[in-house]
Computed example of a mutant assay.
Amino acid sequence: MKGKALYISRGGILTALSFMLVYISTVIPTSRLTVLALTSLIVPIAILTTNIKTSLVIYIATSVISLMFLGLRGNVLLYILLFGIYGLIKLFIEKFKNLPLEIFLKLVYFNCVLLVLWLSASLFTDVTGIKLPEIPYIIPIAFVVMQFIFIVFDYALTQGINYFLNKIYDKIKFRN
């Protein structure tokens, strides 16, 4: 029973931390994506300190709470589609232990998210009547740049997880 209580308490703390970061990303004027990127560390930390089931509950709870209190904003949508769940997706993809395949699968996932975000933005502009400026070649250039940024983000997330494992995990005694 001690294990379940421990997982529930850690899950509650990590859910609160995730929601706090999502909330902060909606109210600060700058560095919104940086704060959202920090939320990507929560699920891997939960996987390391609890289990996959608790990590999934943290992601779902944070998503629902964010939708309830913040509404369907861009930052909340980014958390739900990309930053919140990516730690779990990264875990399953990296089990292949084949770097080219891993990079390919991660980019496929990222591009699916981009497509959903693009369709959502298109729907929003159609509903509101807002016309986005049309700049020649901007979409293909932005697409290529975003691929590079995503690879850098994935590497930074790996480094953040390694930092947690090497510098924090043993010192705080997260052992069950």
Rank of each mutant, 00 (worst) to 15 (best):
I58R: 15
I89M: 10
N111Q: 07
I139C: 03
L165Y: 07
G3F: 15
N176C: 09
A61V: 08
Q147T: 01
Y7K: 15
Y155N: 07
I89W: 12
I89L: 12
L81Y: 05
I141S: 11
P100Y: 12
I161A: 11
V108K: 08
F83Y: 02
N98K: 14
I151G: 01
F148G: 10
T39D: 00
A46D: 05
L91N: 10
M20R: 06
S9V: 14
I135H: 09
L82K: 13
I138F: 15
A142T: 04
A156N: 03
L107V: 01
I168G: 02
N176S: 14
E134K: 13
R175M: 04
I80S: 06
I138S: 11
L123R: 14
L132C: 02
V108T: 04
I168L: 07
F19V: 06
K2N: 15
I172C: 07
F69M: 11
I80M: 09
L119W: 05
G71C: 06
I149N: 06
F96P: 02
V64H: 12
L38H: 02
T128N: 09
A46E: 07
I149C: 09
G12Q: 09
P29R: 15
N75Y: 06
F153A: 03
L77R: 14
I89F: 13
S31I: 03
I28M: 07
F83P: 01
M20T: 03
L36V: 01
Q147I: 03
F19M: 05
L48T: 14
L70R: 09
I45C: 08
M68W: 12
T34C: 04
G12F: 10
T50F: 15
F69I: 05
N162W: 08
L157D: 02
K173E: 07
I42G: 07
G84M: 10
L21S: 01
D126C: 09
A37D: 00
P136I: 05
A16P: 03
T34N: 05
